[in-house]
């Protein structure tokens, strides 16, 4: 097969949360350019299983860049070299025969490693639970458009709502800060009339929860925006800060 590629992988292996981890090097002799990066890991895992070894654990679900389950650091960049692309949508055509790829889990104390490349991202769930929602007294559904929302506001809110909660922003941040994730939700809801009544309690509670979980503070490196598969802008972080200042003023 002319298109077959020989790819070397240096992968972080860790048996459990408390276990000592280490890098293992593997060779996949029959990779090809049409594979996605996760399919490369699948092929490697088949190889490992056949030789009686433990397969590499990694998170994934949709494999089409919409669920936020996948996420590993590929050659030093969260989700790998392609911009605005979750690693499930990264394809091997960006690599060439003989390449070595380093694969590591997200590294942050707030995202403890469960096994190999799988980390526990429930800290994100607790940040959302602290206020990333709109309280509604459920009744019958309202008519569409009974709450007018300007197109520009709706579009921006949609951009911010695009966050899939993958955690790449934390992984890439030199400070392991969760500011982009938290700010995306705060900004999304702050753009909309439904979110307005709770905006002050929301921003305070979510920012406090973020600190509580042990994420670092933001130093404005903006690395998060560069790796975010949804291209969420750090302007959300500026918005979060303005929201917080307003809440401070009472």
């Amino acid at each position: 097969m002319a298109e077959s590629m020989n790819i070397k992988l240096k992968v972080w292996r860790q048996a459990g949360p408390k276990a000592q981890g280490r890098f293992e090097t593997y060779t996949v002799p029959d990779a090809n350019p049409h594979m996605s990066f996760l399919e490369l890991l699948d092929v490697l895992n088949e190889q490992l299983i056949k030789s009686g070894k433990d397969p590499i654990e990694f998170d994934h679900d949709c494999r089409e860049g919409i669920c936020g389950s996948c996420g590993v650091v590929v050659d030093g960049v969260a989700h790998g070299p392609q911009r605005r692309t979750a690693c499930c949508q990264l394809h091997m055509r960006h690599y060439k025969d003989g390449d070595t790829i380093v694969v590591e889990p997200w590294r942050a104390e707030a995202f403890p490693i469960i096994k190999d490349l799988v980390v526990d991202r429930s800290a994100f769930d607790r940040i959302i639970a602290a206020g990333g929602f709109v309280s509604v007294n459920a009744g019958s559904a309202q008519d569409a458009n009974c709450l007018p929302i300007a197109k520009t506001a709706a579009d921006l809110a949609m951009d911010f709502a695009a966050c899939i909660g993958c955690g790449a922003c934390v992984a890439a941040c030199p400070n392991a800060s969760a500011s982009l994730f938290t700010a995306a939700k705060i900004s999304h809801l702050a753009m909309l009339p439904q979110g307005a009544p709770e905006r002050k309690s929301r921003v305070t509670a979510m920012v406090n929860q973020m600190a509580e979980e042990g994420f670092g503070d933001c130093s404005n490196h903006a690395e998060c925006e560069a790796v975010c598969p949804k291209g969420i802008s750090i302007s959300t972080i500026a918005t979060m800060r303005r929201e917080y200042f307003k809440a401070m003023l009472g």
């Binding site: 050659d75 960049v77 104390e109």
Partner: peptide, 20 residues
Amino acid sequence: SKKARRMGYDTYRSAGKPSQ
């Protein structure tokens, strides 16, 4: 920031623009 990531990456680089 040091407490938030005790173990660093083996390989780390910036993804480039729009990173600052």
